[in-house]
Simulated scan of single mutants.
Amino acid sequence: MASTQTLTHFVEAMKMVYGPFDHLTTPEAATHFTFPSNPGAGGHRGRYLWTDAFGVVNFVTLSRETSSDVYLTLAKRLVQTVHDTLGRTRDGTSRLPRATDEEPLKGGLRIGKLAATGPDADGQYHHYLTLWMFALNRLALAAQDRRYNDLAVQLARAVHPHFMVGGRSGGPPSRMVWKVSMDLDEVLVPSEGALDAVTGYVICRLLQRTAARMGGERSQDGDLLSAEIHDYKHLMEHGGRLRPRASRDPLDLGMGLWTCHLVPDEPWAAAMVEAGLESARFVMDETRGVVARDPSRRLAFRELGACMGLKCVDSGDELKGRADGVVNFWRRYLDETTDEDLRPISKVMLAAAMIPGAWKDDYLADG
């Protein structure tokens, strides 16, 4: 369990995004808590999918660290708030196309970008959606409520075909796309994210495993999400996607390590972790790596992603020590060196890097 001091810093970081929740003493009170839209998660109507995915998992961590159901209730409350905001059109008048009250995630979830149009417009990102699936999965395990994993499965099925570019004559997909429109119908960024196929495969396997454990449904063709897993695996095995990559982008590095640690039984994942740790020795070097730059040229949330990833794998005392050093730096200087619009995402990632908790696959194993 985390120290009292670390837990205090964790709560303070989360309060900056989600408001003064530490006065809540009962789950009933938490049920009626309203998350502020300002500062909020830094997105449209106060919600941003990546930030809130971290928020949900961090609340699960707080629940376990404090043995308090208040924080588990806040996680559930945040999930409902996100679904009611990012699962609806920007004016809030209707659910996204294809979604219904019975299947609220069948239309996917908006990113939460502030702009409706333009080069950085709202839409749907595959890597944000898979992160939200993970958050739902963690809540399902922590609350012992399979409905959240079922929602993640619903989301996985709904968005999967819209990010796939199919092969000829109905064959397997040849590649993926990075971003699609809010209604899932139009490709906005045709390039493929470096980790999209890998993350899709890993998260779908995780959802499948949890469904089997919690008595979830099975597809007519066999295991749940078997078609989606097959497509992701096909993409992974072609085009060099499983080639051990030594990314020197801290966020890419950290999220890659985190993703791979969820499938320790797969040799390709072990190879990617090994390559990632080698890269981390450069990235986290205080004399020549990213962390050696002037703070004005550094982005907290990207470095904190690397720190979280390093703490989810067996990275050794030296690298974990360097990660702790980066976390402590940003804990002291984040507010004065980070633009206001990046503070919410940086704060939730700071908390996760301080106490990875539910981000680690074995954390809820006894739940």
Results as ranks from 00 to 15, higher is better:
F35A: 01
T66Y: 04
H160R: 03
R343Q: 07
D285F: 05
E28V: 07
D84H: 15
V11Y: 08
G276I: 08
A156Y: 01
R90V: 08
P356D: 10
T338M: 14
V202T: 11
A13I: 02
L74I: 09
T51D: 11
A152L: 01
T100F: 00
D101P: 04
S279C: 03
R218V: 11
P39T: 15
L155Q: 01
A358Y: 04
A197D: 05
G254R: 04
Y201Q: 01
P161D: 03
M133I: 01
R332F: 06
A246Q: 13
D366P: 01
A143V: 12
R90K: 01
L114K: 07
E217V: 10
T287D: 10
E274P: 09
G305I: 02
M16V: 13
P250T: 10
Y363S: 01
L224F: 07
D185S: 15
R297C: 06
A323G: 02
M16H: 14
L224R: 08
M133A: 05
Y148R: 09
I229W: 04
H238Q: 07
T4P: 04
Y128F: 13
G367F: 15
G167T: 07
A142I: 03
E65I: 00
A2V: 10
K233P: 01
W359D: 02
L86P: 09
G305S: 04
D120T: 15
G55A: 13
D101Q: 11
E286D: 10
E340M: 12
R168T: 12
A275M: 05
G40L: 06
D120A: 13
R95W: 01
D249Q: 11
S247C: 03
G321C: 03
V187P: 07
S67I: 03
D122P: 02
S169Y: 15
R297W: 00
A212W: 12
R98S: 12
T85C: 07
W132Q: 12
L242M: 11
V291S: 05
H238L: 07
A212R: 14
A280M: 10
S63T: 04
M1L: 15
H127S: 14
A156C: 00
C260A: 12
I229K: 04
L310R: 10
V313N: 08
A323F: 09
E340Q: 15
L136P: 01
V11T: 11
L109G: 00
T31P: 00
Y48F: 15
M272T: 11
A358E: 07
R331K: 13
M14Q: 06
R298V: 03
H261N: 12
Y128G: 02
T210M: 06
H32P: 06
H23L: 12
A156M: 07
A158E: 00
